[in-house]
Design a protein around this nucleic acid. Structure first.
Lengths: 307, 307
DNA sequence: CCTCGCTCATAAGACCAGCTTATGCCCTCA
DNA sequence: TGAGGGCATAAGCTGGTCTTATGAGCGAGG
């Protein structure tokens, strides 16, 4: 039966083929410390547990990862590669954790951040990790919403620092531009546009039905403004995620923040279509109540975002 | 040691705070399908199992993720954010899986790829995912080594397509440049260089002891060539990973491929120091035995890498 | 030369997390 | 008003993973 099982590999989910996070962290510890036992101590398990965990990982992957010797363990070549790929997974998990933590500690945190969706999704976890590295004892809480909501939270004193993307700064707030974002036209690699030689024109873009966020979203506002209110929806979806999934599946072209599609582009699940004559840049701004310059942890976070 | 180690007191490891991959995949399925039951069917478990898994995830994170109603489940605002962060983790896991799979199927694969370490670590998993999307039935195997090893594998017929980074093309091979890589100078954010106004000059770089890979590595070769063989090592380490860890911990400045430090830069664990008068670009090339133009799956993979 | 100290491996048993099956309630739609 | 889809709860089982206890290889130092 177990040979038949091999055929089902396609259907088995990732979770069955990828070691769990604890195992990946253990592998990183082994790589760094050069010994199973030392790695075991670091992650708080016994040496036999570590030995068995690494061994079952090697079985699962079908590759020898470490060279064990009576005076330590070193990574094999394959192990070095696997460790590096594992590090990416662990880093993504650390970002997840930083975000989730901020989301949970809604109440009594020292630094309460309000951010628009795109920024909260794609940039904030990284900033939080950096902040944690610089000031480990700063507890951050996160509230997400659109620009109006961010302004409201700041003005009512429920948030200390805000981040918005969009064309204008809400009244009553001071701001500084911390980065730029560009909306880009994307399609699945199979779409005819993916093979175009010449950039897309504004009229052609406006004339083509697109997969879009709903009216009122920041992304949609910028696009409508750039095209003069003309964007034709093929489908309207209520989350960036849903829009991406739809575009990846080949339903049609879409316009999305470049922040949102970085991974998809680098993995070639989506391709970017050059556009001319359309300005799809927008500013990302940090904002705070007029006159109340950020201080303390807010200032610290702000300084981290200006890279 | 990393300072993270010091504060292990109540900071349980990531694995205890981040749901496992199966749970994250389930969450993605719920987001996509709008129902716990449907998501459960998709990932091959029963509805109560899914319900309980999501619930324990909400407990673990301390945040409500889905609004359950008698006619389905929708993500809460926080749930939408968490789902997006979860997607990053799952994508990293997918890249891990693609790489590991290629590493395992060393033998009878239809496409045998030989790649230098940097490319194998940072670029290949993404390409493999893209290839898998385009040609799901292509089995790929991966052999990693330095340029000479790649050339040897190609010439002896043990590999169909190779990827190398470096200054020259091994003899006997044809090549095409598929991308460029740049070596960049990085330090921990606390280093004095991080606050420089003016770019670093070549002499200053050559005069400063750096954290480096060992002599003979591709990275080191390029740096030595650019500086005229003058690079002064502060520490010499045998893996990119070790160099990065050392730089992050603040041991000193280092010179690394921008491919290797993307995450560190975006998370601000490292900062990039501008340099002038030094050419640290290098070509990344696909290579194959002279005369034998890639065909079939090799050609397919090649076309994916030229984005 | 022997013993200590480090390494890793193996075996046996305990434990706990998560699954399945079996139900029940709620809501909507025909 | 009954059918169907949606979610929650309860009880029991299974399996993986941990721990403790032990053995064996290798190197350094008295």
């Amino acid at each position: 039966m177990s040979e038949v099982e091999g055929q089902r590999e396609h259907t088995a989910s990732l979770a069955h083929r990828v070691p769990d996070l604890a195992a990946l962290e253990l592998l990183l510890a082994v790589a760094r410390l050069g010994s199973l036992g030392a790695a075991a101590r670091e992650v708080g398990i016994t040496q036999p547990a570590a030995s068995s965990r690494i061994r079952s990982m090697e079985r699962q992957l079908g590759v020898a990862l470490v060279d064990r010797s009576p005076r330590g363990s070193r990574l094999t070549d394959a192990g070095a590669l696997v460790t590096d790929w594992a590090r990416r997974v662990v880093e993504a998990a650390a970002a997840f954790d930083a975000g989730a933590r901020a989301l949970r500690d809604r109440r009594d945190s020292r630094l309460r951040v309000a951010a628009s969706m795109t920024i909260a999704e794609y940039l904030l976890p990284g900033w939080l990790l950096a902040l944690h590295a610089a000031r480990p004892d700063t507890a951050v809480s996160l509230l997400a919403g659109n620009s109006a909501k961010v302004a409201e939270l700041l003005l009512s004193g429920e948030a200390d620092l805000g981040f918005v993307e969009g064309l204008s700064v809400p009244t009553g707030l001071d701001s500084v531009v911390i980065a730029h974002d560009r909306l880009i036209v994307v399609t699945a690699p199979g779409h005819p546009w993916a093979r175009r030689r010449r950039p897309l024109g504004a009229e052609e873009l406006a004339a083509t039905p697109l997969i879009l966020r709903e009216r009122g979203s920041g992304t949609r506002q910028v696009l409508d403004a750039a095209l003069g209110g003309l964007a034709r929806p093929l489908i309207e979806l209520s989350s960036t995620t849903a829009v991406k999934a739809s575009a990846v599946s080949g339903a049609g072209p879409s316009v999305l923040s470049e922040l949102a599609v970085g991974e998809e582009l680098s993995m070639r699940r989506l391709v970017s279509i050059p556009v001319e004559d359309v300005s799809l840049r927008r500013d990302l701004r940090a904002v705070w109540p007029k006159g109340h310059r950020p201080t303390g942890p807010a200032r610290e976070l702000l300084s981290l975002t200006r890279g």
